[in-house]
Design a protein around this nucleic acid. Sequence first.
DNA 1: TGAAAATAAATTGTGCACAATATAATCGCG
DNA 2: CGCGATTATATTGTGCACAATTTATTTTCA
Lengths: 151, 151
Amino acid sequence: MKADVASGSVELAPSFEDQVCFPLYSAANAVVRAYRPLLQALDLTYLQYMVLMILWDERQLKVKDICDRMRLDSGTLTPLVKRLEAKGLVTRRRDPEDERARLIAITDAGMALREAAREIPGELACRIGIGKGDVAQLRSLCAALLEALDA
Amino acid sequence: MKADVASGSVELAPSFEDQVCFPLYSAANAVVRAYRPLLQALDLTYLQYMVLMILWDERQLKVKDICDRMRLDSGTLTPLVKRLEAKGLVTRRRDPEDERARLIAITDAGMALREAAREIPGELACRIGIGKGDVAQLRSLCAALLEALDA
DNA sequence: TGAAAATAAATTGTGCACAATATAATCGCG
DNA sequence: CGCGATTATATTGTGCACAATTTATTTTCA
């Protein structure tokens, strides 16, 4: 017998075990941990890898565009992109059409990493250990949650 | 037509839009963002709130026990618990039975926060914006992913 | 028993995440 | 045109996440 004796909508004292969001938090940490050894060979973090992945397709984007796609702010991305620049993987130049903006462009060295990273998605898929259907479902639930929370 | 022309198992060049794990990562960030304004009144972070929630039930635990439940390490928890101690919400004493260990115990002030936090789960549930069934499913998918990745 | 192995915390250093703020350029509109 | 509002990026400060290492204690077992 737990509580909620008669009324039906008592505010239960919050309990850690009942938390729905903490497994989400832990799972996100676990994913980053799982990527780490794979990305170590490329001297990249998970976030840096994500930014490069965007630039492998787009070649060049403003900081703002990257922020929007990744749902991160400039306080996170500015130093991250500077680290990519320090490794010679991207360039950061002002947009001549709008001097406020920065154009982040992938370099040849940055593009070359695409080949070196080709095996990573497959290797991670093996470690994920849940079925493809479950993965798709997880993805769409997260997307729905995101849309609701950021609204 | 994307690629994978004839063979059936070509390694596709990884694309950001296809990433399954990034929505998970973003959703976890969004959850922490959603909690922030609710916890601000209590001067707590999301993680501090989670630690307190464990101690509201258990009264006293070793750092190691908290690490295990939260899947975090002492490098994360030691400073966090020290901040809770600085706020007078927990005490940190050596375990007389094992001088290596620290016993983290909730104080009266820490227990008192339980009442102040009583409304938070309900308020967050409103903001979550996806159905209870979806939330349960998300939770169990994250738990499965966690178990697979940490194995 | 006593030395090697294992364990629990703590420390150090790097990299996110984000609030708050600052700076600078552009836009909108009277 | 000009000036207030908006926008893009950068900076500062706090807190998490974790690898790598250190210190202290306990366990193990030859």
